[in-house]
Design a protein around this nucleic acid. Sequence first.
RNA 1: GGGCGAAUAGCUCAGCUGGGAGAGCGCCUGCCUUACAAGCAGGAUGUCGGGGGUUCGAGCCCCUCUUCGCCCACCA
Length: 885
Amino acid sequence: MDKQLPKGYDPAQVEQKWYRIWEARGDFRADETAAAPPYSIVIPPPNVTGVLHMGHALNNTLQDILCRWKRMTGHEVLWMPGTDHAGIATQNVVEKQLAAEGRDRHELGRDKFVERVWQWREESGGQIINQLKHLGATCDWERERFTMDEGLSRAVREVFVRLHEDGLIYRANRLINWCPRCHTALSDLEVEHQDKKGHLWHLRYPVVGTDRHLVVATTRPETMLGDSAVAVHPEDERYRELIGKSVLLPLVDREIPVIADEYVDMEFGSGAVKITPAHDFNDFEIGKRHGLELVNILDESGVINENGGRYQGQDRNAARQQIVADLQDRGLLERIDDYANAVGECYRCRTIIEPYLSKQWYVAVKPLAEQAIAAVKDGRTKILPAQWEKTYFEWMNNIQDWCVSRQIWWGHRIPAWFCDDCGEITVSREDARVCGHCGSDKLQQETDVLDTWFSSALWPFSTMGWPEQTTALKKFYPTSCLVTGFDILFFWVARMMMMGLKFMGEVPFKEVYIHALVRDAQGQKMSKSKGNVIDPLTVVEEYGADAFRYTLTAFAAMGRDIKLSTERIGGYRNFVNKLWNASRFALMNLEDFDPATADLKRFELSLADQWILDRFAATARGTNQALADYKFNDAAGLLYSFTWHEFCDWYVELIKDDLYGENTAARLRAQTVLYTVLEGLLRLLHPVIPFVTEEIWQVLPGARPTASIMQADYPRDGYVAVDSAAVAKMELLMDVIRAIRNLRGELDVAPGRKIAVVLDCQTAASESVIREGEACIRSLARVGELRCGVAIEHPAQASTQVAGDVEVLIPLAGLIDVEEEQARLQKEIAKLDKDVQFFTKKLSNEKFVANAPPQVLEKDRGKLQAAEEKLKILRQGLVKIQALK
RNA sequence: GGGCGAAUAGCUCAGCUGGGAGAGCGCCUGCCUUACAAGCAGGAUGUCGGGGGUUCGAGCCCCUCUUCGCCCACCA
């Protein structure tokens, strides 16, 4: 039967075809009842609003490689997919839609709004799942979960109630980070600090009963409306006499005390600090220490409230300008300095956050963090690269209680009910009907929802059916590995560790592989505003998913960011193409070949056969090791150089004579090795480039035990025992061929022209190697007449090179430019001479000889000897050339 | 303010526990050799950021300086 590949590889068509077949056949399905050892990964759930970006592409390519590899090594693989409801982000998307219709969520009301979000999710949410399929991701899609699913919601409630029962959840009235646009509290992590150019305003506060002013410096003059005191350092001579006195707060005409607190830095600003306990975290603490009044001057939109007197109704920014202007009018503005400081922004909408006083729900995470620290310390979970463990410990050790309530509508509503009668709170797994304290049925459910990251923290077990004790949990928890970026190490990884240990009693994953960030070619972070975003789907369309995956893999060196450019992807597209063409070549020569009847052990393998089989075995071993170590770039590099530079450049060329020749035994032998190596190579490459390998593998002749390459065994070693001496012999032949090619190049011999070559062998052993490989030399180096032997007579005029212990001579009577040849030899000799001197000196150093390990000594002695021999030969050649002059 | 990382060929980067520096792309020369010009053969290219130290031996270990990134942090 004729099975051929088309001349050009068409990724789009092939990718679509195979992905459909794989998915329809259920090839990605995980069987929790299977006996095979488990391997499991939970996907970092992309936001349901998400669009595939480079970070996702890298993240999921690496996960897919691991999953495909593990599947092929006999594991039962579960790659659990799903999406995150992304509370604030999703609510923002739907709110924007409403705004476009000239409406807002308050008009709809909570229930209708939430309904609308669900509707949005049905229609346009989760497109990222489809996009992942374009990359070839082999998630078990039948298990796809969503953090707002019924089951996951149940897990969320269970966790909340149990934490509450354990006293680890509490409510408190504190300053929190408030986004005036999203109208919600945020956790500390959700605030991003940006250094911004601003000003330091120096304000004068009149001291009551004197004509003095006390100058205070502030970056936020509008907060003066809420000042409760001015603080100075107790030992500050300048202000000592003012402590205990009062100043008159301008514009609002309130008297506030001057207090002493060591928090104040005498060196900074004027050394006097206005204290606004309701709008600054430090001031809040100072306020607590001194029993100061909390004056809240803002409403939830960041507009000045009734406490702001005549500024009521002004936006905080407008109020700032107005207040500065008014102070200036009254001569109370001392000066304005330029000043840069870190301003907190909402990580979802970039609005400047306000420290804001409100009652929120908290999780006391310290006890959970202790467990999470211990689990990494004792190695139950390994974080790679290891340097991230330090960052992890650092954060865990300094962890603050987690504010988990959000004042938005989209999310898991907190399962707590307030009693109108007794005022107590009832926390319950089921919707509460009556107050757990007084039995009243006048209950109102808490309107707040939970932080999105609360449900993500449960992901490794909630997706497997917890709180039920499912067989999936039994089989696949703890998961084998988590692949993620460092940007969510705290948001997500740390919290999963805490929750997993608390509720499963076991770590959620045994290993965490933290990969790099994908940047643009200049090393800039990709962002829409910079316009330097490369869209993964466009790349897939243009270069094919395999080329793209290979690029990401090849650059995924541990701990280093990836600078991606399309030229690089082009390079790996060429690689895919190379494999395609080599396979076409193979198929053309395997038309009459049946792998069922061919057995490597039946043949007397040639040097080339043994060499390529040896190289294949080394590549297989190296690739497995690299993958086990998460050294994806190493795996990619090994596979690349084997495929291109060993298999294609050498082996395929070496067997052409056998394949084309009359000797049917030689032809069958070459076919068998060619088939064996190519078929194995496809399997070895499959985790990285799944599509093209499947396409080729399917058209290889003969039948194979599995329907898809993805179920075939992953090569771990060689096929037959290979004689290492044979490998060394082949390497000598290759050196000889390279030497002849090199001379041809130097001498500008036309590529088509066959030349005569004399090979002077130092030993009978190498002579026999040359005889054995004579055909190879002739064909790969385009040699016509070939004479070889020990101490064979040299041609009168020849150009010389040395390969191993073989002197390669190209006789070119009358064609050599004597001057040029002499110069070339002299250059070579000079180089060798330097080498000989280097090693001679090194080896005559007694301390070196005494201290260096024997292998090193032996190696260097060998090098010295080789260099000396080569030098001797070249010197003789030089003498002969000079004699011609 | 604390912590982390990077500096190696023109560009992008590998380089394991220290044993005379590598790849890809680009560049130069010659080739449409019946798998592949998205290709083949050959070639050039480096005070491994500066300085000091340890060692028989340092790109790798120690100290120090310089220049870039990143993360965390409540100096108004």
